[in-house]
Design a protein around this nucleic acid. Structure first.
Lengths: 127, 127
DNA sequence: TGCATTCATAACTATATAGTTATATCCTCA
DNA sequence: TGAGGATATAACTATATAGTTATGAATGCA
């Protein structure tokens, strides 16, 4: 972090260090795979074992394990070992907050486009 | 939440279609590159031309153009042509909201880790 | 019209990573 | 102790994409 930001430790938008930016980007990238979003959503109703998740998502166990590692590495899920089973759970409910924001904005943007198409060109709407 | 979703309370977390999930993931992935986050931040203070952005970021012009295309394709920036110059601007301030959330959570998690290290294992602190 | 500026794109290389198959490791239980 | 189950990891292939260099296309100006 450079000198300008050093005495403004809460300057979110001001001078974010390259390292901090990389961390933020890594989080976003971790959430940038549909299968990982599905896994996070499956974990929303509670802790799940790898095999349960594998079944729920419909993929192979090694693939699910690898994606779980990505999510754990960025601190989005926790791992708890119990006997020979590993149980994963949401570490940071932030993920749902982020998804909700993106979802509602996407919906708004899509509705704008529908609106624009309805007013302008395209097939006439009945009634 | 809009009226349609109001009486379909599962619309967000329940049954998000695969297509919708892919859209959300694509947005996150678009924000998953440090250079793109830097570009978005540079645009926070207002519209910028490609050459101005290239200078501000410190990369090559083709590289900046390519990243701008990614951001435009997912609807995060707008493009305005003026003469021979192209001016880009933030299309969706949502990006800053998302960054703020991730940043503050990252800070909280890091502070927890520092706390844990201070209390527990690791080299003994003198005095 | 000729030249410079601005931007986009094509072509390429290098790297990251999603998914698969095979296997190693650890645990439980008979 | 041996069999079987649960998970992680190694090795591999295929694909996506970040960055570079070269060039095309549009604009503005002398």
């Amino acid at each position: 972090m450079n000198a300008r930001a050093a005495h403004r430790p809460n300057a979110n938008h001001g001078e974010l260090s390259d390292a901090a930016l990389a961390l933020v980007a890594t989080r976003f990238r971790a959430m940038g795979e549909p299968i990982r979003l599905r896994m996070l959503r499956a974990l929303e109703r509670g802790e799940q074992s790898v095999s349960a998740l594998t079944e729920a998502i419909g993929s192979t166990q090694p693939n699910i394990s690898k994606h779980l590692k990505v999510l754990q590495d960025v601190g989005l899920v926790n791992r708890r070992q119990e006997g020979s089973a590993a149980h994963y759970s949401i570490a940071d409910p932030m993920v749902f907050e982020l998804c909700d924001i993106v979802c509602s904005r996407l919906r708004a943007q899509l509705e704008e486009q529908v609106e624009a198409l309805g007013r302008g060109a395209g097939p006439r709407r009945r009634a």
